[in-house]
Amino acid sequence: MRELALHILDIAENSISAGADQIKISVNEDFLNDLLTITVEDNGKGMDAETLEKITDPFITSRTTRQVGLGIPFFKAAAEACDGTFQIESEVGAGTKVASVFKHSHIDRMPLGDITGTLQTLIIGTPEVNWVFEYVVDQNCFVFDDQPIKETLDGVPLSEPAVMKFIREMINEGIQDVRQKVSSTI
């Protein structure tokens, strides 16, 4: 994959498959410490210790093991190729948190890419999940929560053209706003 946003989409798909109805994605660009952190947190069914070990251990993650997929090893490899770390915590019946840290300035770090496209896909395409997106650049923060939007819509579907436009623009503006604030304070 060529964008971190595509990895985020893929990791969030795991949360949906785990039956989560609350999923929080956060992206934190910390220029002061030269770090980029991505977390995906869900309230899905979680994993036991044995499964957890299997999916993060590259020696056990063999292709012949049907239950082990590509998504997590891919994301882990992407972080580790950038002097970064990968962490996954999970509790059966409670949820899972995946966290990847990258060295922000690392030459092999993929660009964030189309975050809005990833969020649109998730929000519009999986309306039964409550999506929260938090974007932090240094001390500036944008939080998007689709709950108040759904409450306001009160039954009007998210895939209504004007609603899709509203959500796309809201996310785009929020992201740009945070980025502009940072560049104007430097």
Binding site: G117, Q120, T121, G125, S159, P161, M164
Partner: peptide, 30 residues
């Protein structure tokens, strides 16, 4: 996703938006 599914879905959403196509439910599935 690796084969470009997000771009395909994005194209569909953009078209719904630009051509004002109501009554289409867009879903994504794992």
């Amino acid at each position: 996703i690796a084969a470009g599914a997000r771009e395909t879905l994005k194209t569909i959403m953009d078209m719904i938006e630009n051509e004002n196509l109501s009554d289409i439910i867009v879903r994504q599935t794992g």
